[in-house]
């Protein structure tokens, strides 16, 4: 699957995460900004990478601004951003969730 354009999902509200996804060529590269990076940074990056891989994306640049989101939110926002970036919003990838 190809990223056609840069896309964004999520807000900067408490307990949300904002994911911006754009084209990459060197695996999934994540730039994470989070107040809980020390405790949950690895986990957040793992969930983003796994969600993208399951969706079929192996190369992407991600900017993630986390406001304390739980894993389910990280997953949902990542998938929404990925579908917007690949222009596939009319074919929801339910199986990834």
């Amino acid at each position: 699957m190809d990223i056609k354009s840069t896309a964004i999902a999520g807000t900067l509200e408490s307990s949300d995460i904002q994911i911006t996804i754009s084209k990459g060529s060197n695996g999934v590269e994540i730039e994470l900004d989070s107040d809980v990076k020390k405790q949950f940074g690895d986990q957040i990056e793992k969930v983003i990478t796994e969600t993208l891989n399951q969706f079929g994306l192996t190369d992407a640049k991600i900017k993630a601004v986390d406001k304390g989101a739980l894993d389910c939110v990280v997953k949902a926002r990542t998938l929404a951003a990925a579908q917007r970036a690949t222009d596939t919003v009319d074919q929801p990838a339910w199986e990834v969730l």
């Binding site: 020390k38 405790q39 949950f40 986990q43 739980l70």
Partner: peptide, 9 residues
């Protein structure tokens, strides 16, 4: 169960 297990400080 809600938030996961944090990495030790």
């Amino acid at each position: 169960a809600k938030v996961g297990k944090p990495k030790p400080l």
